[in-house]
């Protein structure tokens, strides 16, 4: 029998701590598969964030650094400058990390055309700290710090990071994808391949924003969460390639 699908060597054998149905595991697998398929495992240095993916260093079977909250692009910059153009340096960040506390670092890394790749998980909430409002939280969405629903007058409208970063000259590849269907999961993997390719080919900064779920803090089952991603998130966060040079 031929193997159609098996777990990649670029993931460790450690059981992931994520809640049942969390999209992080899907994206971890995709990133690891691309690293393995591109033959880059020995040249890769990852940078883990603060947030639910804080333990990413346990799961990616590559050298990895754990950064302070939001600072992953700066840490990746330091590592990339030392390791040089033949290395693959990527960060893996959530929406609290990247779109709130780390906005300066992500915008400036793109602005410098820093040759790093960013995997950005947008699940419209702070997961690890217990379901607080994120900059990406949708209007009306209830969280533990927006108990009456996100109010535009009080805290503005959700931020669209891919669109913002695509305006920056140093960005080489920016795409928004989702994990809600098999087709979109396959598209996400292709986007990661393109982002890593942009780095390896020294084109500039690359980022893949992946719309994902947080069943626990959304108060929905994993299956309901995928449906909510489709119904509520996709209309506000359109999928597609925002920048490709």
């Amino acid at each position: 029998m031929a193997v159609v699908f098996k777990k990649t060597e670029a993931l460790t054998d450690t059981v992931m701590h994520y809640c049942p149905g969390c999209g992080h595991g899907i994206v971890h697998r995709l990133v690891a598969e691309v690293i393995e398929e591109m033959g880059l495992q020995e040249k890769t240095v990852g940078v883990a964030p603060v947030g639910c993916a804080v333990f990413a260093y346990r799961y990616f079977n590559v050298d990895i650094q754990e950064a302070a909250h939001g600072r992953a692009p700066a840490v990746a910059t330091g590592a990339k400058r030392v390791l040089g153009p033949d290395s693959l340096v990527f960060t893996y960040q959530g929406d609290g990390d990247l779109a709130s506390i780390g906005t300066a670092e992500i915008v400036q890394a793109a602005h410098r055309g820093e040759k790093i790749s960013v995997i950005f998980i947008n699940n419209a909430i702070y997961g690890m700290t217990g379901g607080q409002m994120a900059p990406t939280t949708l209007l009306g969405q209830k969280t533990t710090t927006s108990p009456y629903g996100r109010d535009k007058e009080l805290c503005g409208s959700p931020i669209r990071m891919s669109e913002l970063l695509a305006t920056i000259e140093g960005s080489a590849y920016i795409e928004r994808t989702a994990v809600n269907s098999t087709a979109n999961i396959i598209k996400t993997k292709k986007a990661i391949q393109k982002a890593f390719g942009a780095q390896v080919n020294r084109k500039g900064f690359s980022l893949v924003e992946v719309l994902s779920t947080c069943p626990t803090n959304w108060g929905k089952s994993p299956v309901e969460s995928m449906d909510w991603l489709e119904e509520a998130m996709l209309p506000y966060y359109p999928l597609g390639v925002y920048k490709e040079v």
């Binding site: 240095v45 940078v47 650094q65 950064a67 302070a68 600072r71 700066a74 840490v75 990746a76 910059t77 330091g78 590592a79 990339k80 400058r81 030392v82 390791l83 300066a104 670092e105 400036q108």
Partner: peptide, 14 residues
């Protein structure tokens, strides 16, 4: 803030 974290990344890379 970014500078010291770049130092972190570079030091971490040896």
């Amino acid at each position: 803030v970014a500078a010291i974290n770049m130092v972190y990344g570079a030091a971490g890379a040896g």
